[in-house]
Design a protein around this nucleic acid. Structure first.
Lengths: 326, 326
DNA sequence: TAGTATAGTGAAAACCTTTCCACAATATTA
DNA sequence: TAATATTGTGGAAAGGTTTTCACTATACTA
C-alpha cells in the first residue's frame, strides 16, 4: 500500500503538503494541488485511517452496547443509529452483551483502550461501580449517576396507557412486565417508569383494582406459559398494559386461546411502536417510541462529546398508536 | 491517560520491558514482571489500542455489510457473528447498505483505508467492478469472481422443497421470490439457486405446472397486496415454495384471507428457519439455514485471511424444519 | 576453565499520519 | 519605498505502541 511519503516523493513535494491537500487544510498552491491529486490518483493512495487515528487520538467509532440486536425494537434503533451516524462518518461497533456483566465491562474498557470514541450503554445490570463518569458514555433507558441519559418519556407513556384504558371503560387493570429491579440489586431503569406512570395515573383517577405482575428480566419478552399463568391468576382483568409489544402480542395470543375476545373482553396496550415492527395479524395498540428520533438524539450527544460541549439528558416524547386491541 | 512510558519510568524499567509484560512475550524476570504489573495497576494503565493497531497494521475489526440489520434472518446472523467473533477479540462494525451501491463502495473502501481488517459482503448489486479481489473480502450468498464465498446449500434446499411438496401430494407449484437478477444487471446470487433447485427437481419428477413469480428486489419481503395479486393470478396452485420465511408468512396470511386452508388446500414452505425466528401463530415449514454455523464458517475464513492462509469457499448444509403448513 | 547457551534488559527504529514552526516568496498597505 | 500581510512550502516532532538488535549477566557444557 502506498503511503503519503510515496505520494510526496513522486509529486516532488513535502509530505506536509500532501497532508494539506488530502485534508483540504492550510495553504496549497493551485498547481501543487493538482499535481498531488494526480499522483494520488495514479498510484491509488488511500490515507491510512489507523495512522490518522494515531495523531488524532480519535477513531470515529461508537460502540453500541445492548442486550441483543435481535430484539425488534433494538434492531430498529440500531438501524437508525447506524444510518444517521453514517452521515457524520461515524461507524457503529455492535456489542451484544447478552445481559452479561462481564461483557459489558469488557465493552466499557474499550473506551479506556481508545478502541472507540464513545459508548452507548443499554443495560439492566448493576454496573454503576464499573462506570467512570468522566468517559464519553451515554446511557439509554437507564439512570446512572453523572452519566448523560437518553430515553423516551416512559412515565408519560404509562399515564397515557392508563388514561386510554380508563376512557375505554376498563375497570380492572393489569400491568405486566419484566422486573427491572433485577433479582437482588435494584437498578434504576427508565423502563420501570412505564409501570409507575401507569399505576399512579390509575390511582389518581380513583381506580382500585390494580394488579402488577413482574417476572425476572428476560429481554422484554415473556414465555407463553408464563403469560397464561398470569392471565389465569387474574381472570377478571379487562385492561392490560404490557411493558413491550412483544409481551403484548404474546398476551393477545394467550387471551384468545383462553376464549377471550380482544378488545371486547380485554383491552391490551403495548409499548414500543405497535405494528410498525411486528405483524401478527393483529394491530396492537401501543405507546410508540421513535427510534429515528432517539437515534438523532444519540447522535447529537455523541457530537457534543466529541466537541467537548456539555452533554445534557434527552427525554423524547411518546405517542399513542391506536391499533385494534383497545 | 497514562502511557507505556509512564509505566516504564515509574517502574524504573525500559518501555520494551513493559511491552513484553503486557504482551506476555519474550524474556522478563519474575521480579521485574511483578513490579511492572504493580505499577500498571497503581496508575491504571491501559494499552492504547490505536497505537497497537499502528504498529501491527491491524485493528481486529470486521465490517459486516448487509442490506439491513432489521431483516430477521440477517439480524440472527449478525448476532451469531458478533458472538463468535467476540471470542477471538474481533469486533463487528455494522454497515447497513440499504441496497445502495454508493454505500457499499464506501464500505469497501474501508479496507484500503485500514479502517477494518476484513469485510463480509452481502449484496445484490452489481458491484463486481468495484471489488479488488486481493483484499480480504468474504462474499455471503453471492458469487463474485475470485472472492471467497460463504453460503448455504440453496440448490439442495430448493430440491428438498420440491420433494416435500411432491411427496405431500401437491400437483401445481409456485415459486415466489424476489428477482435476484436486479433490474437490468444480472448478478449471480446463490439465493436464486433456491428457485433453480426447486424447478429442476420438479421437472426431474415429471411435474409440469410450474409457475414462477419474481418481483423487484425488496429485502426478501413481499407487499401483502402483491402477494394477493399473485395468488389470484394462480388460483389453482397447491404447493408454494417461498424464497424466505417472511414471504412465506405473508402468503399464508393472504391465503387464509382468500378463504384457503393451509396446509389442506395449499401447502407452503419457506426458507431460513421457520418459526425459529418468527412467530405469527403458525409454525411455518421451512428449509432452515443455521446462522450459528454460518457465523462459525465466516469466523474461520476471517482467521484464515488474518493468518495469510488460503481462504476456501464454504457451502453449508440446510435442513427441513417441519411446521404445520405442509 | 574456557566456551557457549540462555535469560533478561533497554535504546532506538518503525508504523503513517498531522501539525507546529521556520522560512521564502509574493501581495498589500502606509 | 519600506514595512507588513498573506500565501505557499518543507523539515521535524509528536502520537504510543511493537520489535529488532545489541548488550550484560547468569547458567550450562565439555
Amino acid at each position: 500500500m502506498p503511503t503519503i511519503k510515496d505520494v510526496a516523493n513522486k509529486a516532488g513535494v513535502g509530505i506536509a503538503t500532501v497532508s494539506r491537500v488530502i485534508n483540504d487544510s492550510g495553504y496549497v498552491g493551485k498547481k501543487t494541488k493538482e499535481k498531488v491529486l494526480k499522483v494520488i490518483d495514479e498510484i491509488g493512495y488511500h490515507p491510512n485511517e489507523i495512522a490518522r487515528s494515531m495523531t488524532r487520538q480519535k477513531n470515529h467509532i461508537v460502540a453500541f452496547v445492548l442486550p441483543n440486536n435481535k430484539h425488534v425494537f433494538f434492531s430498529e434503533l440500531l438501524y437508525e443509529l447506524e444510518q444517521i451516524l453514517f452521515e457524520d462518518d461515524y461507524k457503529v461497533m455492535l456489542c451484544n452483551s447478552s445481559e452479561e456483566t462481564y461483557k459489558e465491562i469488557e465493552f466499557l474498557n474499550m473506551l479506556k483502550n481508545n478502541r472507540v470514541d464513545a459508548l452507548i450503554l443499554l443495560t439492566n445490570n448493576d454496573i454503576e461501580d464499573e462506570i467512570d463518569s468522566k468517559l464519553p458514555i451515554i446511557s439509554f433507558d437507564r439512570i446512572i449517576e453523572n452519566v448523560p441519559l437518553c430515553t423516551s418519556d416512559n412515565y408519560t407513556g404509562g399515564q397515557m396507557a392508563a388514561d386510554i384504558l380508563i376512557d375505554k371503560g376498563c375497570e380492572k387493570f393489569l400491568f405486566i412486565g419484566d422486573d427491572a429491579q433485577g433479582v437482588n440489586t435494584p437498578v434504576n431503569t427508565e423502563v420501570s417508569k412505564r409501570r409507575i406512570g401507569f399505576n399512579e395515573r390509575l390511582k389518581e383517577r380513583g381506580k382500585k383494582q390494580i394488579y402488577n405482575f413482574e417476572y425476572p428480566l428476560g429481554n422484554y419478552l415473556i414465555q407463553p406459559e408464563k403469560a397464561r399463568e398470569v392471565l389465569l391468576k387474574y381472570p377478571d382483568v379487562d385492561g392490560i398494559f404490557a411493558i413491550s409489544d412483544a409481551v403484548g402480542f404474546t398476551l393477545i395470543k394467550e387471551l384468545e386461546a383462553l376464549g377471550k375476545n380482544v378488545p371486547k373482553d380485554v383491552k391490551v396496550i403495548g409499548f414500543d411502536g405497535g405494528s410498525k415492527f411486528f405483524d401478527y395479524g393483529r394491530k396492537l395498540s401501543s405507546i410508540a417510541q421513535s427510534p429515528k428520533k432517539i437515534a438523532k438524539a444519540l447522535r447529537d450527544m455523541i457530537l457534543n462529546f466529541s466537541d467537548n460541549q456539555p452533554v445534557k439528558d434527552i427525554v423524547l416524547p411518546v405517542k399513542f398508536n391506536e391499533g385494534d386491541t383497545t
